[in-house]
């Protein structure tokens, strides 16, 4: 089981980043074992399609769920098709959001909650 949390830094106590496509890092954690690692997001450097690119990364990392604040329509479409669940996190640290996820306190996101990003 792997969960990716949008993060402003490289560890569990970094603040969560509410953006999906343009958050600088993902902290990828196993909620059962507590093991985790950080993965840089290629999105912030993209002129367009950051959300799509980040969604592709989620597929490559074989995560089961994503915790983010906002998600646009393109990224949502990709994650849905890939069968990756999206949960809406809140302001706080990565650790706090992971804990909230473990306790089933994060709402499941099934529709995009942000407009499409920067177009080419």
């Amino acid at each position: 089981m792997k969960v990716a949390i949008c993060a402003q830094g490289t560890h569990l106590d970094a603040p969560m980043d509410l953006r999906f496509g343009r958050c600088p890092y993902f902290v990828v954690a196993d909620p059962q074992t507590g093991e985790w690692e950080h993965v840089p997001n290629p999105g912030p450097g993209a002129a367009g399609g950051a959300g799509i690119q980040a969604a592709q990364l989620m597929i490559k990392l074989k995560v089961d769920a994503v915790i983010t604040g906002r998600l646009g329509p393109n990224a949502m479409e990709v994650l849905k098709k890939a069968g990756i669940k999206v949960y809406e996190g809140t302001v706080g640290t990565v650790r706090q959001n992971l804990e909230a996820y473990r306790q089933n306190r994060l709402p499941l996101l099934t529709q995009p909650n942000a407009p499409g990003g920067h177009k080419p």
């Binding site: 597929i59 990709v78 098709k81 080419p120």
Partner: peptide, 12 residues
């Protein structure tokens, strides 16, 4: 331009 995504079962 990130116009293509490879899913486990198809390319979008």
């Amino acid at each position: 331009f990130h116009a293509l995504v490879v899913l486990p079962q198809e390319v979008m």
